[in-house]
Design a protein around this nucleic acid. Sequence first.
DNA 1: CGCAGCTTGACAATGGTTTTCGTTTTCTAC
DNA 2: GTAGAAAACGAAAACCATTGTCAAGCTGCG
Lengths: 142, 142
Amino acid sequence: MPEILRWHAQLSGAGVRATRKRVQVLEVLIAEPRPITARQLHAELLNRGEPIGLTTVYRAVSSLVDAGLVHAFTQAGEATYRVCGPTRHHHLICRSCGLVLEQTAEPRTDGFEVEAVYGVCAPCARRALPEQQRDQPHRPRP
Amino acid sequence: MPEILRWHAQLSGAGVRATRKRVQVLEVLIAEPRPITARQLHAELLNRGEPIGLTTVYRAVSSLVDAGLVHAFTQAGEATYRVCGPTRHHHLICRSCGLVLEQTAEPRTDGFEVEAVYGVCAPCARRALPEQQRDQPHRPRP
DNA sequence: CGCAGCTTGACAATGGTTTTCGTTTTCTAC
DNA sequence: GTAGAAAACGAAAACCATTGTCAAGCTGCG
């Protein structure tokens, strides 16, 4: 199924009209390789010459999340958004660089239905603390 | 090593004094089986007849997180806190009931250093959607 | 056309968290 | 013990992401 048809199917399936503003928000999200905040979305749309209100951006991403086209993350205490595929999956999110990987394998650790895994990706882990103590528990990196 | 000595060792190791207020905050956290918010911590301390300011609670949990005694989570958009063990580990957090499991095994999915895994625990998963469609991608449960 | 209902956006309100700043407590040196 | 310095404390204000309000605009349908 072509992407654009899938969008409309998923939107209407969730009772959400594919309005101009919502599609514009979705287009920005599709172009972004990693999760961005509502304010960044808003700024990017204004950059593109598309007048839109911040309130509308918040409502659009909310609709898109409800429709299953977009996934919401929490990074540094604020919500970020990114498009995600239609099949069941979970995400690996690097707390340091913001990289997101979609994983289709089902880990089911201890019976958990895993939705999001936060951690530090291999390149960021190598970059940080290359020679310092490594066995400290959960010291947040600056 | 007795718990109380470990606290002091970890606190002083992070350059944090084991003051009366911080110890009281830590005691409440130790008694709580799952993560609680700063406001809940504050209310519980007032309940116990310990006068403390909300600002101090925020600063105390921040110090305790820095010292590695407490781990911070994000649930429903606000920060929650819970004591955690001294050894390297990660957490499984149920988005539905707030249950937290400490895991010491290293999953290292795709080279990630896993810190926190958000999902739905088995009892909550059984309770929700027992017969409805199960293969929807990431539809947030109400 | 004309209505009903969804959508939009400026503005206000909310609420968790942090900053400010003056006061109090704690630690260290004597 | 006492003094002085540094850290901790707390009330109030500031901050800021997010949500609510409400009037105006748009869309589809009879």
